[in-house]
Simulated assay, not measured.
Amino acid sequence: MKNQKKRSDCPVSYSLEAFGDKWSLLIVRDLLMKKECTYGDFAKAEEKIATNILASRLLSLEENGIIQKLEHPDSKAKVLYRLTQKGIDLVPILVEINLWAEKYTEIPDCRKEILSKMHTNKEEFIKNTIKDLKK
């Protein structure tokens, strides 16, 4: 967070200011799964984020250096969003959030395969995910 005043010097507080709202990590999740997304891709996610909130969160994540805008190869009217290195560094956190959630909630069958991969070799899963994002 460049020019924003921090509430405190606490690392948890800093992290929450950067990505600790209801929507930001879902945007990061989508970018982890697809590498690049358009505004429309995010708007179609199953969580049904309102367009004004989506625009606000994309701007906030960009200002915090977690995502970047890229030119869309097929349309000058669209942009692509992609994780920066700072965003890619959230991979281990998202893995842990997934594993935590698995302990306390019912996981749909469509998500169980990826959780199985995380359990099998968490460090290898993280390493391969980061490698794929950097391609």
Rank of each mutant, 00 (worst) to 15 (best):
K131P: 02
V91Y: 09
V79P: 00
L16R: 12
G20R: 09
K135S: 12
A18K: 14
C37M: 08
A101M: 09
I88E: 07
F42Q: 00
K103H: 10
L90H: 08
E106Q: 12
A18I: 11
N98R: 13
C110Q: 11
G40H: 11
R111A: 14
V95L: 02
E36I: 02
D21R: 07
G87F: 06
L99H: 02
A101S: 09
L59E: 12
R57P: 00
L32F: 08
A77K: 15
E124T: 13
V28K: 00
K103I: 03
L16G: 10
I49G: 01
E102P: 04
E113G: 04
G65F: 00
S75P: 10
K76F: 10
K44D: 11
G65Q: 01
Y14S: 12
I67F: 07
I97Y: 06
E36H: 09
I97T: 06
Q4P: 04
W23D: 03
A55D: 05
T105N: 07
E36M: 05
L54S: 01
M118V: 06
E46I: 02
C110W: 13
D109V: 13
L90N: 03
R29N: 10
R7D: 10
K6G: 05
L61P: 01
T129A: 11
A50K: 10
A55V: 03
N98L: 05
Q4W: 08
Y39R: 11
E102F: 05
E71P: 08
K76N: 14
R57A: 01
T129V: 11
K112N: 09
K78C: 07
Y104I: 10
E123L: 09
N98V: 03
D9A: 07
N3L: 14
